[in-house]
Amino acid sequence: MSGIGSGITGEMKEMTYAFPIEGGDFIKAGHASSNIKKILNQLSLDPAIIRRIAVAMYEAEVNVVAHAYRGSMKVFISPEKIRVRVEDEGPGIPDIEKAMQEGYSTASEKVREMGFGAGMGLSNIKKNTDKLDIRSTINKGTVVEMTTFTKPKEA
């Protein structure tokens, strides 16, 4: 596992892992999510929750690959919740509300050829997380933060 900056605070309160994401490289897209999924599996999270997180993580990772230049994926794990923060350097999202709409996409021809760009990513993330927070600065980058509670229905 090539996690950088894996750390822990307090008495087993939180573990963190960080993985880099390369923009434009679709073969490697999913690498960060896969690694985090492996960790969550070992930490004996409920498989159904892991699957939701995996789907959300992957969509956010692909968005960095498709729409930004480079980024990172950080996960904060505690017994109560899993928080995943995907941060990128990129063009930013001008209108987040619009971007959240199903079917809205600015994906380039090249990205569409790769089978992405249906405009379903962000809404899919929303569907699969308990809390979603997106902040974006034009020409600087975007931060997508997704929180999932480990005990079902605690949200």
């Binding site: 087993m12 573990m15 492996k38 599996n41 070992q42 930490l43 004996s44 999270l45 498989p47 794990i77 017994p79 480990t150």
Partner: peptide, 13 residues
């Protein structure tokens, strides 16, 4: 699952 390090999450961590 054979991946779980422990049934208890804190122990697993």
């Amino acid at each position: 699952s054979i991946m779980k390090l422990d049934e208890d999450m804190v122990q697993a961590m």
